[in-house]
Design a protein around this nucleic acid. Structure first.
Length: 373
DNA sequence: CAAACCGGGATCTGCCATTTAA
DNA sequence: TTAAATGGCAGATCCCGGTTTG
């Protein structure tokens, strides 16, 4: 009874009252067999199921994800639906949200209103929030702790992240804001510790730089990030200052990769380069200058390198100009073909031309054709 | 002027396991 | 003992163009 009373603070509809009576009478009339005792004592709420059905919710999916929600006596599916629709979500979106994260229907209007406002402090429009909820309902609904959300915003701001950073963070890694403040704090402190241990003198700046360069870092475990840092340091034999510079710079982008994936990518790149006559120093140089090379899966990277080598480009040139690896194999192939047609000489002219956006490349190509040389 | 530098945009969730709360 | 809350995991690039530099 106590829990019922507690949940009564939110809108109490006639429908919900009816549902209570219905489920009680069902409870009384059933004489369960022993092996069915559990489910019969706490069956799914029929009128809730009906409600959800009317909303277009995929019950099978909801049941599979959070079965307990379907057994609750008091829920707020209508309030939630109305709320989301008032923010511009279509019926279909609402149904999809509830199907994928049923617990959403346990939130009160008051709570929803408050949480939405907090998100609106960072995101400009309701549409933007709706699109994030559609993408990832869990990020918004998994935690019911608005106070914690508020503290997170304060905390992240205190790191020196400005409005634009926060926007990017919430828009692309919304889970960050549902983390407990403590978890976020741990990651930040972990990063600051790294900086201090490596002899850096501005740990706060370091942490801020890493977070703003890798917006996914706060939804990773410190264990994972630590393992990646340790592996990078060991496999590249980095000094403290080298490591610090790498992490504070472009290296931050690969810290959130899963440990095995990063390790595999490194090993396979190393092998590939060795078999093409590179030495340890070459490998180190490439990765330090262009750590994102490790972001690419082994198979993809390998065929990309093959494509370049086959096109008459040397490993040496790639190491000196790693940005050419930015583009897809397909893109590179097309450029190589176009350049081959006009007899472009990479030895003479370098490979910078490959590291050009489509527009710039085409403009360049036109010039080369127009004035041969 | 071209080349080099540099950062940002799109996207990045959905599930499972464990801990905590009622 | 449930359900809620929370933490953590695997997954796996490409492209563009403004600005600075030479």
């Amino acid at each position: 009874m106590a829990t019922w009373v507690k949940s009564l603070h939110r809108t109490f509809t006639l429908q919900q009252a009816f549902r209570l009576v219905a489920s009680q009478s069902r409870f009384c009339s059933v004489t369960p067999k022993e092996n069915e005792l559990k489910t019969s004592l706490n069956p799914e709420n029929e009128s809730l199921l009906e409600n959800l059905n009317l909303l277009g919710v995929d019950l099978k999916m909801a049941r599979q994800r959070q079965p307990g929600v379907l057994r609750k006596s008091f829920t707020n599916e209508q309030g939630l639906a109305g709320f989301l629709q008032s923010k511009g979500a279509s019926r279909k979106i609402v149904a999809s949200i509830i199907s994928r994260y049923p617990r959403a229907i346990t939130r009160s209007l008051e709570h929803l209103e408050q949480r939405w406002q907090l998100w609106r402090n960072i995101l400009q429009t309701d549409e933007e929030i709706v699109s994030i909820l559609e993408r990832s309902p869990e990020s918004f609904f998994r935690s019911s702790d608005n106070e914690n959300l508020e503290k997170n915003i304060t905390f992240l701001s205190s790191l020196g992240l400005n409005k634009k950073h926060l926007h990017r963070l919430l828009a692309t890694a919304p889970r960050t804001f549902s983390n407990s403040l403590e978890l976020n704090r741990q990651m930040v402190e972990f990063l600051e510790d790294i900086c201090v241990k490596m002899g850096g003198n501005s740990p706060e700046q370091f942490a801020k730089d890493v977070v703003s360069r890798n917006i996914y870092i706060l939804i990773r475990s410190t264990k994972r990030v630590k393992a990646n840092i340790d592996n990078l340091r060991a496999s590249l034999k980095l000094s403290d200052s080298e490591l610090l510079a790498l992490l504070q710079g472009p290296g931050a982008e690969i810290l959130d990769l899963s440990n095995e994936y990063l390790k595999n990518n490194f090993t396979s790149l190393e092998q590939k380069m060795r078999s093409n006559g590179c030495r340890k120093a070459d490998i180190k140089k490439l990765i330090i200058r262009y750590p994102i090379v490790l972001y690419t899966g082994a198979a993809t990277l390998s065929s990309k390198l093959d494509c370049l080598l086959k096109g008459g480009i040397t490993m040496r040139q790639i190491i000196d100009k790693p940005k050419v690896l930015d583009y897809s194999t397909q893109n590179i192939t097309a450029k190589l073909e176009a350049l081959h047609r006009i007899g472009f000489d990479f030895h003479e002219n370098g490979i910078s031309i490959l590291d050009l956006s489509r527009k710039r490349f085409e403009a360049k190509l036109e010039k080369l054709v127009g004035s041969p040389g």
